[in-house]
Design a binder for these strands. Structure first.
Lengths: 200, 200
DNA sequence: AAATATTGTTATGATCCATATCAATTAAAC
DNA sequence: GTTTAATTGATATGGATCATAACAATATTT
């Protein structure tokens, strides 16, 4: 039960937090004297008996969506990533960054483009990701001795150390999944997801 | 077998297609005479024996990630959404738009904010989504008779008609999932995802 | 009546993702 | 062996999604 709660706690994600910090340091000095057109556009009126309007404060009907794979996938992913971000906030690692560190650790010296490709990240977007990791001293690029075009990517000592801390947090999350989904449930989920994603 | 293939076919998503169209109509007239600094930054060189570099053209090791719930979730979601977008391209409906139409259909006359909330969409972002649906004549806002602040939301005839077409496409996708995941596999997946997402 | 909350709205900024384009280099074609 | 094509990393840019601040109209609470 305690383990299950860890997956719900609606803690703020990293992104939300940094954005909130930025916001308070800004205060939005609108700088425009003219109070631009705000408020609402008129909407067509309707007779109260137009339909079965307002059952009262009751809950909405979601039955049309709750058995749709795509929808439940999306909601699950949002929940899991929020949980992940909260756990990894102290390490300042996003889910994507964690996956990059992990793949580099398991495949030291591979080309940038290879790492990006297996992760489904565009070569071009991966450049910036690696820039950030390198700037933080977690990863490094080295010129390949065999191909002057490519960069071989490695983790630094600091990168390996951080990854090891991250692995522990990640294991805890997997354990919580196992507790939440029952024995075998987690494994079944991963197996089904792999089929859907067509991984390996 | 045929059904499984439908989930893989790497057709372009709606977003990709519209972006490609826009791009070809633009041609990037750089407008700047000075050829801004391009090319690569130098990366530190490395001795070839620095590590177990380049096993050859072999595949990378992904074992560290493929049993992680968060990662498999993300990959599955990307695959499913791509498939969805391809199927719905003829209707010009995104997954998010489909979910909105579905919820409105099952809950006619509810407030904008209620529809948005159950879908996990910010009130503020939902405004634009509804604007688009309304502009296309699929949904409409009407002033609530009981609360002049709120707008009651309905589907139009056209919206209902389009939704019905969409439902058929969606059913086909679910069938393909059932075929891909084996008997009961799809239901198990949805059940596990609901637990993870904490829906109902 | 005044203070507070809700609802829809606009504006804005952040992040993510995809594409076009480029320079350097390597591989392939001729 | 020179020309052509492909690969690799990089920059710039635009689209889509998402979160927040601020605001007007209205409703609710005090």
């Amino acid at each position: 039960m305690g383990a299950e709660d860890d997956l719900t706690q609606a803690r703020k994600t990293q992104a939300q937090r940094t954005q909130a910090q930025r916001a308070q340091a800004q205060k939005t000095t609108s700088a425009n004297g003219a109070p631009a057109r705000r408020g609402r556009k008129p909407a067509r009126a309707v007779e109260p008996d137009d339909a079965d309007e307002m059952a009262e404060g009751s809950d909405l009907d979601l039955t049309g969506l709750t058995s749709v794979v795509g929808y439940t996938l999306r909601r699950a992913q949002m929940a899991v990533f929020e949980d992940f971000s909260a756990r990894f906030a102290t390490l300042d690692l996003t889910p994507a960054q964690y996956s990059v560190l992990l793949v580099i650790a398991d495949n030291p010296g591979r080309k940038q483009s290879e790492i990006a490709r297996v992760l489904g990240i565009q070569r071009t977007n991966f450049v910036v990701m690696l820039d950030q990791l390198e700037k933080r001293g977690l990863a490094e690029r080295t010129r390949s001795a065999t191909d002057a075009r490519s960069h071989a990517v490695f983790l630094t000592k600091a990168g390996t150390a951080l990854l090891n801390k991250a692995r522990k947090l990640q294991s805890a999350q997997e354990e919580d999944f196992a507790n939440l989904l029952g024995p075998g449930g987690r494994d079944t989920l991963v197996s089904l997801l792999r089929k859907v994603a067509r991984i390996d």
